[in-house]
Amino acid sequence: MIGTLLHYLEYPFVRYALVVGVLIALCSSLLGVTLVLKRYSFIGNGLSSVAFGAMTVATVLDMTNEMTLVLPVTVLCAVLLLSAGQRAALKGDAAVAMVSVGALAFGYMLMNIFSTSSNLSADVCSTLFGSTSILTLTIREVVLCIVLSVAVVAAFVLFYHKIFAVTFDESFAQATGTNARAYNLVIAVIVAVIIVLAMNLVGSLLISALVIFPALSAMRVHKTFLSVTICSAILSVACALAGLLVSILGGTPVGSTIVAVNAVAFGIFSLIGRLKGGVSRG
């Protein structure tokens, strides 16, 4: 098996896939805690549907670089969904659900009307569940992914304490002079970039799993914000690596394999948490 693996690693597209997979996993786990605690677990689905809708529009318009449309549209939607949070007429999950199914329906319709491809359902399936396109990345896409990942990680580190303050107690932060609204915007933008990045890896339907599973697992065992954040980052990278390797060796679909590994990790962490809790209580 090791031999097969080394053999595969000689191909650049396999190495690209591993690099991109690890980076995406790292980024997507960072804001998991914040999103779970702000009751926005499903934001990933909403935004990736938006990205899907934007992508179909870009395809119909025959744009050469789809990102120039997809990224701004997704960022805009993230800002609207996250920042209008408390005061909007539509509360959190309802708004997310509405945007999500709306954009999905719209995108699918566009694809149906304008599609030139002969195999429409395969196209749709791959956008929803993650394509094998992670294995066909060009060097340009890899570079773009690296640049965006570095930006996301840097922004997260620089805003770490502010994100904590705004997530833990938004009204206290606002009352004592932190510009909570601005930092909610920062969070929204980071989330949008992560979603657009991660869509390639696991697809629209599975993206929430990548965002929230590592955070939820880490929260079973760890009790402070810092340790949860670090643990979920490491866990997410490990699960992505394991999932990628399994899917390369076993020929399983990339996205669902990674999510399955995350689900198993969640089970293990829950068990550890239960055991630890039992010991410290008893």
């Binding site: 303050a165 932060a173 402070t224 810092l226 340790s227």
Partner: peptide, 15 residues
Amino acid sequence: FPASVEEIVRSGFQG
């Protein structure tokens, strides 16, 4: 919310 006492107290300085 996973947060230690120290993390919370320090967040008072955020403003």
